[in-house]
């Protein structure tokens, strides 16, 4: 069953001058995770806001849990959880207050709201800081609290709009763990992200969008195959360039690219860490000590390069919709 189904969504801003969504369709199978991947301004937030009943599309239709988001927004709101890019919690109150308040607004009884708040605080490792003002929370803690607030009534469908944007690596890691737990619990999840790595880690399926259109869809493996896997990069002293080009070319099987300014030699590899070791061995045998060597996983830019032939462009559009919306 398709728990989320969006068909031919169109949304324009500034009286039609900016097309945020341009005939966008996507769907999420029950109990699976779909990641909507795209740069700023691709329309990610707009999709989420439409599916979460906050925004009406100009045309097209969307159903969540079988309910039409335009005709039955109340029904949709009862089964969804939404966590946005900003931690939408009341900073003047503490964590406990926030969760109890939202619990009450989901029409839990006072005691049920308290019980649920305590469960969630425990689950999200916030129990110790429950009575501290949110102002003293780290970015990661705020996001976790925000996520907890969207899980009060155990939604069937969860929308996470860039859940880790702006978090440090540790915060991101913690957030991923939390999200993975939720997915194990069987929630249907639609998450937007700018990071291929995140989509790779969390999603069953990935939809790549650009300028409000879906430009690719598939599993992360399939997408990566399209992109061409990993890239090996070596930086050496000038006098070692020739020998290194030769070694990298041999391991990669493709002609390496040489960046003169950075003295960087790079080539696609398919065997991952093994390629790295082979190149290192070969360089070592020639007595060459690289200044830097790295295995680069494909980034969103690489995906875009491969799919569209242009780099991911940042546009102010998402910012416009956010500023207006918030």
């Amino acid at each position: 069953m398709k728990t989320v189904l969006a068909e031919h969504l169109v949304k324009t801003y500034r009286k039609g001058h900016v097309r945020a969504l341009d005939d966008l369709s996507l769907d999420v199978e029950e109990g699976t995770v779909l990641s909507v991947l795209g740069p700023n301004g691709a329309g990610k937030t707009t999709v989420v806001r439409i599916l979460a009943t906050l925004l009406a599309p100009d045309s097209g239709s969307a159903r969540v849990g079988g309910f039409d988001v335009i005709r039955h927004p109340d029904k949709v709101r009862e089964i969804i959880g939404l966590s946005g890019q900003y931690a939408a919690v009341d900073e003047t109150l503490n964590g406990w207050d926030n969760l109890v308040m939202f619990g009450r607004l989901y029409h839990l009884s006072k005691s049920a709201a308290v019980k649920r708040a305590e469960e969630l605080l425990e689950q999200f490792s916030l129990a110790e800081s429950a009575r501290r003002p949110i102002k003293t929370y780290s970015g990661g803690m705020r996001r976790r609290l925000d996520l907890a607030a969207s899980l009060i009534v155990q939604p069937k469908v969860l929308f996470l709009d860039e859940p880790t944007t702006g978090l440090d690596p540790r915060g991101r890691q913690e957030m991923w763990q939390v999200i993975e737990e939720l997915v194990k619990g069987g929630v249907t999840l639609l998450l937007t992200t700018q990071y291929l790595e995140e989509a790779d880690q969390l999603a069953d399926d990935i939809v790549v969008i650009d300028h409000g259109k879906v430009i690719a869809r598939g599993t992360s493996d399939a997408l990566k195959k399209q992109v061409g896997g990993e890239q090996l990069e070596v930086i050496v002293e000038h006098h070692n360039v020739a020998a290194t080009l030769e070694a990298v070319g041999r391991v990669s099987g493709a002609k390496p690219i040489f960046d003169e300014g950075l003295r960087k030699i790079s080539a696609p590899v398919s065997t991952g860490a093994r390629a790295l070791i082979e190149v290192l061995r070969s360089l070592d045998a020639d007595g060459i000590h690289p200044l830097d060597i790295a295995l680069k996983r494909p980034s969103l830019d690489d995906v875009f390069m491969a799919l569209t032939g242009h780099v991911a462009e940042d546009e102010a559009l998402d910012d416009v919709s956010k500023k207006r919306g918030r």
Partner: peptide, 10 residues
């Protein structure tokens, strides 16, 4: 802060 978004999704 996006709090209004949250209220509206309730």
């Amino acid at each position: 802060k996006g709090l209004i978004d949250r209220y509206q999704s309730l």
